[in-house]
Design a protein around this nucleic acid. Structure first.
Length: 200
DNA sequence: GATTGGATCGCCT
DNA sequence: GGCGATCCAATCG
């Protein structure tokens, strides 16, 4: 797909994240997520997200109060919230809204852009469509684990950059995947014509 | 202190 | 379509 042209260096500011999680989730589509480790840099264009709101949202980890695992959600916006799911996979989120609102956006799929060879090595898969088409997959491909939890996403090492414009008409809204509580809420967003989403 | 279920994935049939 | 892998924390007792 197309690159990011002259928008490459525009890191999204804190004000971008200090809004409701559903607004941020939609607005993150088409942006580029970048992470650098000693192994190298990887990045991908965000093509699928889900919003997890504050205490009113029963599906959100924050719904039943602060714990050791979800503490990052109760802190400021613009931080990585990474947790282990099903004992095996990590999920990468970015915290949102005012400091008093414990909410986050789950990044569910990326279109791989930089460091594709490194992603292939980490995933043990060649097919580029299998590298980041799901929250557990992209965490493995990007190198996200618990040590990343709490990190700012406003640094050169870990950030989200302006990249591709996404028209309102390209965005599909559905219910969130894999949850049982508050399952009817329209809080999943993806780019309609993307070949890199986890599921239709 | 034990049990259970979860914002998943990959391999099996 | 079903299921096993395997950790964390909520929910019991």
């Amino acid at each position: 797909m197309l690159g990011c042209g002259n928008l490459d260096k525009n890191i999204l500011p804190l004000s971008f994240y200090r809004r409701r999680a559903d607004v941020v989730a939609k607005d993150l589509l088409g942006k580029e997520l970048v992470f650098t480790t000693k192994e190298g840099s990887t990045s991908g264009i965000i093509v699928e997200t889900e919003a997890y709101l504050g205490p009113g949202d029963a599906a959100s980890h924050s719904a039943r109060g602060k714990t050791g695992r979800n503490a990052t959600m109760f802190g400021p916006a613009g931080r990585a919230y990474v947790y282990l799911i099903y004992g095996i996979h990590y999920c990468f989120n970015i915290t949102t809204d005012k400091d008093t609102v414990p909410s986050a956006v789950l990044i569910r799929a990326l279109e791989p852009r930089q460091g594709i060879e490194l992603m292939q090595r980490r995933r043990g898969k060649e097919n580029v469509r299998e590298l980041c088409s799901g929250p557990g997959k992209l965490a493995q491909a990007m190198g996200f684990d618990k040590s990343v939890d709490g990190s700012s996403v406003l640094t050169d090492k870990l950030c989200v950059r302006e990249c591709r414009e996404v028209a309102e008409s390209e965005i599909v809204t559905t219910t969130r995947i894999g949850i049982t509580k508050a399952a009817h809420l329209p809080l999943r967003f993806y780019i309609a014509n993307s070949r890199y989403i986890s599921a239709p």
